[in-house]
Amino acid sequence: MEIAILPFSFPEYLELHPGDNERRFSEYLRFGALPEVDPSRGEEFCRAQLTGIFNTVLVDDVLARLGTGDANTLRAIARFLYSNIGNITNTDMIAKAIGIGPVTVNRYVGKLEEAFLFRRAERYDIIGKRILKTNAKFYASDLGLRNAALIGAEGTDISRPLENTVYLELLRRGYTVHVGSYRDREIDFTAMRNGRVEYYQVCLSMMPQEARERELRPLSSVGDNFPKTILTLDRLGLGTENGIEIVNVMDWLIGADDPGTF
């Protein structure tokens, strides 16, 4: 029997590294949640440690599974996927970007998934209630490894890492998670558990009116009565709007919005 274990949840991270929640959350997004990575030892030490772990997994685990393969090509594919977490991706896109054949891409990506560096979220047709086989999104199993692999190119935008964090937390809570597709609109996550469906959007802020309308629109268009939630870093403007819950993402991760979660 295989039991999949994810890196620390945010409450587990806070238990190991107590302190100001917002500062710790920033570290959580930057250094990831592997137990041995201690943010108190400084950024340089954590980066070096994460780079070592990433290289070890890539060479000793993934290349070993491949039997034969090119480490540079494998690293390039991993960096492409890390750069595009939360974006719709397919084999042809990766093959074109890297300059290799789609068969090789499929083989390498499969082994990266087997090594648990990445997790695939397939698209789900909400109306047709079926998995869409074309295109998918990939998420990093640990954001610290992502930032180590992309060092110098990871950027400062935290919207994708935030979405990645929510995806992993939904898995941790026992949901099967897909990217929702409703007509021509996308819902970040359609989460299913025990016959129950929940819909989630993730955004940095709902304060700009255009952002509020953009995030509410896809959820409002879904006509069923399953729970719909928008997770944001905002502390103001929370509550319920047209049946859609707007919740602070750190409170949600800690379980403050749902005392029965943990």
Rank of each mutant, 00 (worst) to 15 (best):
L6R: 04
L6C: 02
V57A: 07
A48Y: 00
P11Y: 03
E44R: 12
F10L: 05
L16W: 07
F45K: 11
H17D: 02
T56N: 13
R23L: 15
E2A: 15
C46E: 01
Y28R: 03
A33P: 10
V62D: 00
R65I: 14
E27Q: 12
P18G: 10
V59I: 13
F8G: 03
T51I: 08
L63V: 10
E27K: 05
V59C: 03
L66Q: 09
L63R: 07
N55W: 04
F54M: 04
E15R: 14
S26D: 14
Q49D: 13
L50S: 03
E27F: 01
R24C: 01
R47L: 14
A4K: 13
F45A: 14
F45T: 14
R23W: 11
V59R: 14
P35N: 11
E2H: 15
L29N: 09
G19E: 06
S40W: 09
N21T: 13
G42N: 09
C46W: 00
A64Y: 13
V37M: 08
G52H: 10
V59E: 12
V57P: 06
E36G: 01
D60P: 01
L34A: 07
L34Q: 07
L63I: 04
P35V: 08
R23K: 14
E27S: 07
I5P: 01
R23T: 15
E15W: 11
F31H: 04
L29Y: 07
F25E: 11
Y13V: 00
V59G: 05
G19F: 10
F25I: 10
E27P: 01
R30A: 12
H17R: 06
D60V: 08
F31P: 00
A48E: 14
A4I: 15
Q49C: 11
L50H: 02
T56I: 02
G42Q: 04
S26C: 09
N55P: 00
A48K: 11
F10R: 02
L50V: 01
L29C: 08
R41C: 12
R24T: 08
G19C: 07
Q49G: 06
E44S: 13
F10K: 04
L58V: 08
F25T: 11
F31V: 11
F25Q: 09
V59N: 09
L34K: 11
G19S: 08
V59S: 10
R65W: 06
P18L: 13
D61G: 04
E27M: 06
D60Q: 12
A64R: 15
E43D: 12
G19K: 03
Y28M: 00
R24G: 06
S26K: 15
F10H: 03
G52C: 10
Y13W: 05
L66W: 02
L29I: 11
P18R: 09
Y13A: 02
E12G: 04
I3N: 13
E15I: 06
L66S: 08
D38C: 09
Y28P: 01
T51V: 08
